Computed example of a mutant assay.
Amino acid sequence: MEFGFGPEDEEFRAEARAWLAAHLTGDFAAAVGRGGPGSEHEGGAQRRAWERELGRDGWIGLGWDSDAYGNRRATLTQQVVWAEEYARVRAPGRYGHIGENLLAPTLLAYGTPEQRDEFLPAIARGEALWCQGYSEPGAGSDLAGVRTRAVRDGADGFRISGQKIWTSLAQDADWCFVLA
Results as ranks from 00 to 15, higher is better:
residue 80 V to N: 02
residue 87 A to E: 07
residue 79 Q to P: 00
residue 157 G to M: 05
residue 109 A to K: 15
residue 103 L to E: 03
residue 139 A to C: 05
residue 157 G to H: 09
residue 169 L to G: 00
residue 151 V to Q: 12
residue 26 G to V: 08
residue 15 E to D: 11
residue 56 R to K: 14
residue 115 Q to V: 12
residue 93 G to T: 07
residue 97 H to L: 13
residue 143 L to Q: 07
residue 14 A to K: 13
residue 163 Q to M: 02
residue 106 T to L: 14
residue 30 A to F: 02
residue 124 A to V: 13
residue 174 D to K: 03
residue 161 S to V: 08
residue 58 G to Y: 05
residue 16 A to P: 02
residue 19 W to E: 04
residue 100 E to Y: 09
residue 133 G to E: 01
residue 138 G to E: 07
residue 15 E to I: 02
residue 22 A to C: 02
residue 164 K to M: 01
residue 92 P to H: 00
residue 68 A to F: 09
residue 83 A to H: 12
residue 55 G to T: 06
residue 162 G to E: 05
residue 87 A to C: 03
residue 68 A to Q: 14
residue 102 L to C: 15
residue 81 V to T: 07
residue 35 G to D: 04
residue 150 A to M: 07
residue 9 D to F: 03
residue 134 Y to P: 00
residue 70 G to W: 06
residue 172 D to I: 06
residue 178 V to E: 03
residue 108 L to I: 12
residue 148 T to L: 10
residue 161 S to R: 14
residue 37 P to V: 05
residue 158 F to L: 10
residue 150 A to Y: 01
residue 5 F to N: 06
residue 160 I to L: 15
residue 161 S to C: 03
residue 18 A to N: 08
residue 43 G to F: 07
residue 34 R to G: 00
residue 6 G to F: 04
residue 174 D to N: 14
residue 158 F to N: 00
residue 104 A to L: 08
residue 178 V to A: 11
residue 159 R to S: 07
residue 87 A to Q: 13
residue 69 Y to V: 02
residue 61 G to V: 05
residue 166 W to E: 05
residue 95 Y to K: 12
residue 145 G to N: 10
residue 176 C to R: 09
residue 17 R to G: 03
residue 117 D to K: 13
residue 13 R to Q: 09
residue 175 W to T: 01
residue 70 G to C: 07
residue 66 S to N: 03
residue 169 L to K: 09
residue 87 A to W: 10
residue 46 Q to S: 13
residue 111 G to C: 12
residue 31 A to R: 09
residue 31 A to T: 10
residue 37 P to A: 09
residue 102 L to V: 13
residue 105 P to L: 09
residue 91 A to P: 00
residue 71 N to S: 04
residue 43 G to I: 08
residue 112 T to Q: 08
residue 40 E to C: 12
residue 171 Q to T: 11
residue 131 C to F: 05
residue 79 Q to G: 11
residue 135 S to K: 11
residue 119 F to I: 09
residue 155 A to Q: 08
residue 166 W to T: 02
residue 77 T to I: 00
residue 134 Y to D: 11
